[in-house]
């Protein structure tokens, strides 16, 4: 069966010549993958990133922006490989939210 990401040849609308300057957080997501996939580490390779993106349901795939898909896939890969745990991640997210609430 054709995956949702596999859109080559399907009918679609006109190509809008859109450009945008990448936001700093988007470039940092990219940097995470570059570092994780570097041959000195080999923690998440590009094909694994893609499998993680393709595993998002069709609805999530369309709802998330490009780098949102990336960070979700990177996170899921790290959890699956046991590089980070859900507990650690939950605590860290709570810490970041608390930090932001205090305006830091």
């Amino acid at each position: 069966m054709r995956g949702h990401h596999d859109m080559g040849g399907l009918p679609a609308g006109p190509v809008e010549p859109t450009e945008h300057n990448y936001a700093p957080w988007e470039k940092r997501v990219h940097a995470l993958l570059t570092l994780l996939s570097h041959s000195s580490r080999g923690i998440i390779m590009v094909d694994e990133l893609r499998i993680g993106i393709e595993a998002l349901g069709a609805e999530e795939y369309d709802r998330l922006s490009y780098y949102e898909r990336w960070i979700v896939s990177i996170t899921n890969n790290l959890l699956k490989k046991g590089v980070i745990s859900t507990d650690e991640l939950g605590r860290k997210l709570a810490e970041i939210e608390a930090r932001e609430a205090k305006g830091q």
């Binding site: 590089v83 980070i84 991640l89 997210l93 939210e97």
Partner: peptide
């Protein structure tokens, strides 16, 4: 998703997988 990036980056730096300097150099 922005907080997720921050969380993942901070956890990986804390684990010594890469450094903040590695991120800056990559950017």
């Amino acid at each position: 998703y922005q907080r997720l990036e921050e969380a993942v980056r901070e956890l990986l730096i804390a684990k010594g997988i890469f450094t903040g300097e590695d991120i800056r150099r990559t950017l």
